[in-house]
Design a protein around this nucleic acid. Structure first.
Lengths: 190, 190
DNA sequence: GTCTATAAGATGATAGAC
DNA sequence: GTCTATCATCTTATAGAC
């Protein structure tokens, strides 16, 4: 689907603001100053703040889906594939110490509109489903080794990755993410 | 140190609000309604919202310190000690799906006063230091097994626990915390 | 599509009476 | 210590001109 320039810019800047300050930590005014547009104009594109949040998560979910397809197509080894997947998070943090938007919104769940919460859960589902599939393939190829179901391990791994991002954010240190991610990966390798 | 009744009540209710909605998701008005006191009265006890946050983290740090002492004294086996430590997080979540306050504030760091951020980092340091000590003892007793320094593993483990809480909060499911925590623990056991 | 103007409520904080 | 009253500011959102 084609999205107008302004609409896309709003989503891009809103993403950064949420990753840095959270949904409750940014306002239409912050957005308007970053973009150089009045708050009323933002409301033209997104009726409410909740609508903006929903559109934002839908957009990043679609982008993640495309990236998953790309990883599956371009990288044969499930181990390398997983490493490359980890880079999404690392790059996010390296780009101004941003948090994963899904994890950020997850912690703010109790203050968000229900439809946005639902979208955030779909975000988790997407990642966990891809991880599950990748882990399963890797186990079949003897690249990974684990006892529980791939679905459960995927959940644990994704949770751990979110925690690694949180820890990195707490101190502003990428190294915290890297060390944790490496540890998790080594636990899974055969 | 002795803390007046009202002051203690404010801290107790503020803790719940932050664990549920985050620092930016709660207001003095929310607090005042829960406690049955006017917002002006809260300002008598804590000059600013930041001061309230700082006092709150200092209080829970002190309580955690007491609990660490208690665990070290009462539970001989490092494995059991760690399991019991995990219960802090489990109970927190089971009590109304609350997030760990340290992890919540960590993600809001970029919107918090500097002194509060420093306090949050001390909170992380406290937990990681105790975990490091416990892991080291456990390794000496062949209860745990790991290659890296106990300090690094402690960081990875604490990050993973925060992630497990985040994941549980995302879906409102304790099981997500339990499954992740069990997995982490099994990775460490000899 | 974007603007000005404005509404209506929330928010952190203070002054001064009781 | 707690209250009423009040403040300045911020926040989401709308109406209507351009």
């Amino acid at each position: 689907m084609k999205i107008s320039n302004t609409k896309a810019t709003i989503l891009t800047e809103a993403l950064e603001l949420i990753q840095l300050k959270g949904y409750n930590g940014f306002s239409f005014h912050h957005l308007s100053e970053k973009i150089g547009i009045k708050t009323a104009s933002i409301h033209y594109h997104f009726a409410t703040k909740g609508d903006l949040g929903i559109a934002l998560v839908q957009k990043i979910r679609a982008e993640a889906g495309d990236y998953f397809t790309q990883l599956d197509r371009d990288i044969a080894d499930p181990g390398k594939r997983l490493e490359k997947y980890f880079n999404i998070f690392r790059s996010t943090f390296e780009n101004g110490h941003r948090m994963c938007v899904g994890g950020m919104l997850a912690l703010e769940s109790k203050t968000l509109p229900a439809e946005l919460v639902a979208e955030v859960r779909c975000y988790f589902d997407d990642h966990e489903a891809w991880l599950s599939k990748t882990l399963q393939i890797g186990r079949k190829q003897k690249v990974f080794s684990f006892n529980k179901s791939s679905r459960e391990v995927a959940r644990n791994l994704f949770a751990a990755l979110e925690g690694a991002m949180l820890s990195a954010c707490a101190f502003g240190e990428v190294e915290r993410f890297n060390a944790a991610a490496t540890w998790y990966l080594n636990q899974l390798r055969s």
